[in-house]
Design a protein around this nucleic acid. Sequence first.
DNA 1: GGTCAGGTTCCGA
DNA 2: TCGGAACCTGAC
Length: 295
Amino acid sequence: MGRKPKPGGNVKIARIDTGGPFDLGQVLDSGQVFHWETGSLDGQPVWIGCLGDEPVWLAQPDPVTVVCPAGEAARVAHYLGIDEPIARLHATFPADDAVLAEAVAWCPGLRLIRQPVWECLATFITSSLKQVAHIRQISLTLRRRFGVPHQIAGQTVFAYPTPAALAAAGEAELRACGLGYRAVGLWRTASALAAGDADLAELDALDDAEAREWLMRFHGVGEKIANCVLLFGCGRHGAFPIDVWMDRILRERYFGPRKRKTLKPRELQAWAEAHFGPHAGYAQQYLFHFARKTF
DNA sequence: GGTCAGGTTCCGA
DNA sequence: TCGGAACCTGAC
């Protein structure tokens, strides 16, 4: 399948021109996905994980190149948002916003990942009131116990478990993976999808507000998690998740001492969506990453 | 050992 | 409609 080993046993690779600043390590560690692991291939450091159900390795040999297994370039570029018209997105940001400009300049190689909707929904259900390290641990545990194993670069990686697999596991089994009270939401959501009571494809026909409401029917999915799914899983750039980090940086950097104390969450949400524009979610990612790494 | 973490739900006013 | 408590668990 076009993956002929070269003399010496080297794997055939594809090179992707990122067309501008790109930072693979930051993209994979910016709180969007939680399962990529480091490894090595032919002595070179690589990231190893799954794009949906397919195992891949990724590496960045220089600032404007990403390499991956031959034949995977298109899928990888799509997943990593490399094919996004990034300059055009930036052009929609508010021109006089020095805070956002600072955040973009701090990490210009950041991108929004396009991840599978189910994987995104399930992962963020397990993220509530958890630190990133723990979300990661839960995600890997679920994959190892209920996901399909794949071999890549001499390591075993696991696809995210299907709704049917998690439904069959039962709530008690999920709880045993360290999920705590989040097990209820994950299990009920997986069960509903596995039974056909709901279908994530229904999201396609809905506008942003309707899609948000649709997602919030699931137990354990509130406004913040619904917005994460819309942004990271559905590519809806208008969605603007406000978590504690975003709440912190928005209040501190955009409002005076009095206003920042009295502003209600709903008002902050509405202000952010209007202020940052049609690609507010993209702006959110720069600000979030900036806040998390520098506060 | 206490506190806190990328939220949501439930309950009472 | 709104504020506050409760919720599992692991890391510092």
